[in-house]
């Protein structure tokens, strides 16, 4: 019998196994969400959310303006707009403090895009809405309380 051939097969099998493990355990989640910031969207409290963006403790800034209703009758559809008057705004993140997944949406703005985005989010209950802005490498934020009379995350 050709022993060398057996060894080669074994080695090959071993490598294949390693590859599979890597694919199942480590590489796959990142490949599936190549750009999606899993850590941020899994964050369960504000500090973890800020940490996911390496934002530390963002400074509150009057140049970040949140447009949202004071009272939202329907928590399933709460219009939220964020305007940043800071120069070189490159990222806008909308977070809802009391939602199970606090980070609602992140927007990356290439040069030439105006720092003015609007979207609609769900809110499970009355909560502070945070807008975090990355401008010129620094992080700023603003918050606004939105009262919800009918939650949007119930079943």
């Amino acid at each position: 019998m050709n022993n060398q051939r057996r060894d080669t097969l074994k080695a090959g099998g071993g490598l294949g196994m390693l590859g599979l493990l890597a694919a199942a355990g480590f590489i796959k989640p990142e490949m599936a969400h190549a750009a999606w910031n899993q850590t941020a969207f899994d964050a369960k409290n504000m500090d973890a959310a800020f940490a996911a963006f390496s934002a530390g403790k963002p400074a509150e800034s009057a140049d970040v303006v949140i447009t949202a209703p004071d009272i939202a009758e329907n928590g399933a559809v709460v219009p939220v707009g964020v305007v940043s008057n800071l120069p070189k705004t490159e990222q806008i993140v909308i977070m809802i403090e009391k939602n199970p997944n606090m980070v609602a949406a992140t927007f990356t703005l290439p040069e030439g895009t105006v720092a003015d985005v609007q979207t609609r989010v769900k809110m499970g209950q009355t909560s502070d809405v945070y807008a975090m802005v990355k401008a010129d490498g620094k992080f700023y934020m603003a918050k606004k309380e939105v009262k919800v009379t009918l939650g949007g995350c119930g079943g």
């Binding site: 559809v77 949406a105 927007f107 895009t113 985005v117 809110m123």
Partner: peptide
């Protein structure tokens, strides 16, 4: 063909998501 916005959404975004933004040019 020039990227003007990239966004990441979480499950907190409403059903039938709405998005508005502006770019120069």
């Amino acid at each position: 063909d020039k990227l003007v916005l990239s966004a990441e959404f979480g499950p907190s975004v409403s059903t039938n998501p709405y998005l508005a933004f502006k770019f120069k040019g």
